[in-house]
Design a protein around this nucleic acid. Structure first.
Lengths: 337, 337
DNA sequence: TATAGCATTTCAAACGTTTGAAATAATTGA
DNA sequence: TCAATTATTTCAAACGTTTGAAATGCTATA
């Protein structure tokens, strides 16, 4: 049953015409007679002709491969974002190579080199938390291969394409929501300072306070990274002053928020039941928590991913100039549980 | 800076020799003079020559693409398994197309057709919970394209390649662990009956009981699918007889176990604190639960994925005959929390 | 009836590799 | 010194497409 795949040549022989006529008919060239086109297209359909991608790619000097570098697939944001990317890429005849940097710069550099060797047509990247030098990524642009930064990006650098969640707006909404519920002492637990959006979120928090006449207190702000001990000590700091305890908390990421909640519960914080929390993520595990956050900030990762691949394909096809740097924002929603 | 990629032809011109000599030197042909080889290989290295995959694939009539069909990337088992697959595939020059069936047969059929059209060199698949007819997957084998079933597979069918967790052994261990802790009334909450390993796990449970002289009671067994209401009613069933309440529970999957725990807690089950649970998965969220399972069954998804791709590559390279059906088991470990 | 003009089809080269056969060069033995 | 042998290199076709240029066939006009 080992049937050889149908080629243009095979169709041409069957139809007693030349390979180029068949090719042009299938690609709807205006110089080809309408009746001929119909005959060719029907035959192609009947025999389930599928053009050989390798041949086309060779001819067009493309690989039709998109590279993705992201920190970690076990993070729901990234897993979900991949979905948006793959769907759209596939629809447009592109394949995707997903690679994980494990949030390490060195690994990220390795992966970049590997993808460059694979001759990807474009790159989508969420940088590691330690990435400050970008030469391993700049080399793509230098070779005319477009790069789109998504979510995590070099915030100081305006000369690159970016797709990101409107994390300012998300944090603003969450803070405002808590203010409207009567909270005046709202703590903010930020992420690694190296990650750009940590600051956008902080600004959303600050602005919500200001716009609603809630005084800002520096003691109510702390930072952590993805490390549990760090989170615990940050929380200890936020809650150390018994006179001035926060009654609400906005955290930069849900698993970290869960660590915080767990800690507060473990020390039998006297007013634990009154504390209201919100984190970024909207992860499905919330429903299993005994003391779930009152709301979540939904970041729409699928949409972020889809916007990134859309932009990248436009750059690949030179529908947008490589130097015409774009910045796309995807709004967040507050989901009340 | 738009530099054209280095080709064999370019190297040949630089070295003043023919393209075929260069090609053969790089591929270490014995007929090529050692000194020539050295010169070519050095030049190739210095100029960062990377062979054009499309050209090789065209020549070798391969796509170097592996297709994967799985139910859902948001399931930690599958996300983790992907990691094993991608790593190994990449190392061997293969790309991977990941596609999600969302546990729907119809979507699975669509994806299979899509992947067939993409001319994948091989397929790794975890079937949907409703897949009973396999014609959409059989067509691959009929065309000489190997298929490896992983985790979820047609258990009744011996004529296919399988890689799966030793879910019998995992469940046996978990049950035995609970027996050793003094439990005599251990409930078993199984998954969808259509999924093959539901029964393997059940057998592990049964055998552990038997081997340790614990009487089997049919009332202590219930089944659910991934639906929350279903789980709740299964749990209600298991705990309905106040005379004969289980004191321990083995569940086929962790998120479902979490649903069960949540329900038992919500009804203020009198002996809730004494009930000990174990589920498959070992998901990281366990640490956030107030009443976590006492242990987890680690299924080593990365290893399952890696074994699947290893087998598939052997089949693609015909190191193993297509008809020489393999079955590979990956052991589980009990992780006590 | 030749010919300009158009519609349609075909030719042929190219994309970058691989590889068996053929050609060439170097070495050996008589 | 010359043929035979062996080592090494090159030729040329192939993989399946695309595409500008060239060729063909046809119609209409002078």
């Amino acid at each position: 049953m080992q049937n050889t795949p149908i080629t243009l040549k095979f169709l041409a022989e069957k139809l007693k015409m030349s390979v180029s006529t068949v090719s042009k008919a299938l690609n709807n060239y205006p110089t080809i007679n309408e009746y001929t086109k119909k005959r060719v297209q029907e035959m192609a359909r009947d025999l389930h002709f599928t053009p050989n991608k390798s041949a086309i790619n060779l001819k067009e000097r493309k690989s039709r491969i998109i590279g993705i570098i992201l920190p970690n697939l076990l993070d729901y944001f990234f897993t979900r974002s991949i979905y948006g990317v793959e769907q759209f890429a596939m629809k447009n005849g592109y394949n995707v190579i997903i690679s994980q940097s494990h949030d390490e710069l060195e690994k990220e550099i390795q992966l970049a080199d590997m993808l460059l060797k694979s001759r990807v047509d474009g790159l989508i990247v969420a940088i590691s938390k330690n990435t400050q030098d970008f030469s391993h990524l700049d080399q793509f642009e230098n070779m005319g291969i477009p790069v789109v930064y998504y979510t995590r990006n070099p915030s100081f650098n305006l000369s690159c394409h970016k797709v990101l969640g409107n994390t300012f707006q998300g944090c603003y909404q969450a803070t405002k929501f808590l203010i409207n519920r009567g909270h005046q002492k709202i703590a903010y637990l930020g992420g690694p300072k190296m990650i750009n959006f940590t600051h956008d979120r902080f600004n959303g928090y600050i602005n919500a306070l200001k716009d609603n006449q809630v005084p800002f207190q520096a003691e109510l702000v702390a930072y952590t990274d993805f490390d549990k001990e760090n989170t615990v000590s940050a929380i200890q700091n936020l809650f150390k002053d018994s006179e001035n305890m926060p009654t609400a908390l906005v955290a930069f990421k849900e698993p970290i928020l869960f660590d915080a909640i767990k800690y507060l519960k473990s020390i039998h914080h006297p007013k634990f039941d009154e504390i209201e929390c919100i984190g970024f993520g909207n992860t499905p595990f919330i429903s299993y928590l005994d003391s779930p956050p009152i709301a979540s900030i939904e970041e729409n990762p699928e949409s972020v991913g889809e916007n990134a691949i859309k932009l990248l394909l436009q750059l690949i096809n030179r529908e947008i100039e490589l130097q015409d740097y774009q910045k796309i924002m995807v709004d967040c929603q507050l989901v009340v549980h």
